[in-house]
Computed example of a mutant assay.
Amino acid sequence: QSVASDILRMDSTNGDALYVRGLCLYYEDCIDKAVQFFIQALRMAPDHEKARLACRNAKALKAKKEEGNRAFKEGNFEEAYSLYTDALTIDPNNIKTNAKLYCNRATNFSSWPNVYQTWLSNFSMYIKHGCVCPALLIYRLSCSSYMDTEMYEEAVRDYEKVYQTEKTKEHKHLLKVAQLELKKSKRKDYYKVLGVEKNASEDEIKKAYHKRALMHHPDRHSGASAEVQKEEEKKFKEVGEAFTVLSDPKKKSRYDSGHDLEDDGGMEDFDANNIFKAFFGGPGGFSFEASGPGNYFFQFG
């Protein structure tokens, strides 16, 4: 990995180095970043078959895992079990990603309640009699799967059991991570508000705001019912609020780390209309113009 990085510093177009860098990330379970390197490698060397195969495997593994997570969250446990099993056949050598898949698949015992409850009962007996390892194993498997599928309340519950059973620094850290993710999940999800991924670029965030601000602007819905107008106004404000945070590196960093921006007055001067005017203002900008009472049309520069 270090050799590939050194080569890329001297020659960022080296297809082999891009492939090796992507492969390292792939086996560290950083699949999204790995795919970016594989794609770049193929741009530099279109006939790089190893990069093509690795890219195909990475995309397939990610897609199948996400399908399994979605089925699990929706309560389709048998389908999730099948999807996780299919994912495990894609690349047996990707140990880290496959470990998560095995954890996720183990949690699908909840689709067979009698078996699952028997397991938990037996592991509770292990804890009672001091044989903690088997119990910790199943709870750790459960916790990992809950975290991976964003079921944070369940993850906190089980990590608390793990920490109470064996108070190590590792278990304390895992519990704190789960508690932080639970706290973050209860806030407004600004990424979902704008419809972007958490690793979205500055340009992607701007494009998303452009699209959604126009979609929900109150003037666009001036002829709708009072109920619709109220809902669209609310969405317009949320879009502006999301853009205010995610377009500011410092606020974005604090938001991503779980910090409550309201605690330090970070949003006290927020005004959705001002954000809109600042974004669309200037020469060649955008404006709403009235053609009659309650009637507006869009004008692009």
Rank of each mutant, 00 (worst) to 15 (best):
K211F: 15
S222N: 07
A208C: 08
K207P: 03
A224N: 10
V228T: 11
H210V: 08
K235V: 06
E233H: 11
H217A: 01
K235Y: 12
K206I: 04
D219P: 00
E227M: 04
L194E: 05
H221N: 09
S225M: 05
S225N: 08
H216N: 13
P218I: 02
E232Y: 12
A200F: 03
K211I: 12
E232T: 04
E202F: 13
K211Y: 15
S222H: 02
E233G: 15
K211E: 15
E232D: 10
E204M: 07
N199A: 11
Q229R: 08
P218Q: 03
H210I: 09
E227W: 09
H221L: 11
F236Y: 10
S225T: 11
V228K: 06
G223E: 15
R212H: 15
R212I: 11
A226E: 15
H216S: 11
A226G: 05
Y209Q: 04
V228C: 05
I205D: 03
S201F: 01
G195V: 01
M215S: 10
K234L: 13
K207D: 15
D203N: 06
H217V: 03
P218K: 00
A224H: 09
E204G: 00
A208I: 02
K235N: 10
R220A: 05
E227K: 06
Q229S: 07
E233Y: 08
A213C: 09
E202S: 13
E232K: 05
H210N: 14
N199Y: 13
A224D: 14
A200C: 06
L194K: 02
A213M: 05
V196C: 03
D219G: 05
S225R: 02
H221W: 15
E202A: 14
E233R: 09
S201M: 00
E231A: 12
K211S: 14
D203M: 07
G223D: 15
V196H: 01
E231M: 09
E227D: 08
K206W: 09
G223T: 10
I205T: 03
E227G: 00
D219R: 07
A208G: 02
H210W: 13
K206E: 13
E227C: 01
E232R: 04
